[in-house]
Computed example of a mutant assay.
Amino acid sequence: MSGLAIRTAMEEAFTVQAGARGPSFNIPKVAIIVTDGRPQDQVTEVAARARAAGIELYAVGVDRADLRSLRMMASEPLEEHVFYVETYGVIEKLSSKFQETFCVRDKCALGSHGCQHICVSDGVASYHCDCHAGFTLNEDKKTCSDIQEVRKLVSIEDACGCEATLAFQGKVISYLQGLNTKLDGILEKLRANGLGQIHH
């Protein structure tokens, strides 16, 4: 009766009338099928329809469950959607696995990211902020500034746009002054030794 269970979930549980969120919410539809035998109905066809409708199917086999049938029901990749337990009593072993899979905190989706413009999800519980076109990300990695405003600030701080040139000129002048000082010292020594007459 696994096929009947999947069909009932599709027709009754996963409808907006029954409380399911609409497509705009981007909330995944997940069904976990638990069975301890071989399906007695057309489970393969019904499972394929459910997967095509966007329902993610997990198949959990208990005791004498038919592994081949579980694999026909479940979504891909099978190694992440097919499980087996010895008895119903130990099915709780899977609870942490399902919690990890279904309860991942996507801060972008939850809106708890603090990004001023755009939140970009980088995977499990990881994200970074980005800005709309014409804006740049500030040092706090959360807020954005208008690029034109940033350029205005730069032009006010360095109105002639030659701050780097002035710094370079300052270094050259300092170096030349150092050379002049050394040359003056050499000339003084030459004069002291009577060799200070330089002819032009």
Rank of each mutant, 00 (worst) to 15 (best):
D41V: 14
K189G: 04
G89E: 01
R68T: 02
H200C: 02
V154H: 09
L187N: 14
C160A: 10
Q148R: 14
T181F: 07
I156F: 12
A109F: 08
D36I: 10
S96M: 04
R7I: 02
Q17N: 08
I6F: 04
A53E: 10
V172S: 03
I198N: 05
K29Q: 13
H113T: 02
Q116F: 01
C115K: 04
D146R: 08
H128P: 05
I91S: 10
H200F: 10
F98E: 11
V34N: 13
D106Q: 13
I198E: 05
A20G: 04
I33L: 15
Y58C: 05
K182W: 08
S174M: 03
Y58A: 03
V82Y: 09
G61N: 06
S155M: 11
S145I: 02
C103F: 15
R64K: 13
E80S: 04
D36P: 06
H200N: 05
G61M: 04
Y127A: 03
R68Y: 12
L183M: 09
A109I: 01
C160M: 05
C144S: 03
K182Y: 12
E12F: 12
A192N: 15
C131A: 07
D140C: 03
C103G: 10
L179K: 14
G161T: 06
C108Y: 01
T87N: 15
L70A: 14
S96A: 11
S96C: 00
D146E: 04
E92Q: 10
Q177K: 09
L57V: 11
I32C: 03
A159M: 10
S155A: 14
F14E: 04
A59E: 14
A164W: 00
N193C: 13
A53H: 01
G61R: 12
I33R: 11
V104K: 14
A192E: 11
R64F: 15
Q99G: 07
Q177D: 13
V82W: 08
K29M: 12
N26P: 00
G37A: 06
D106W: 03
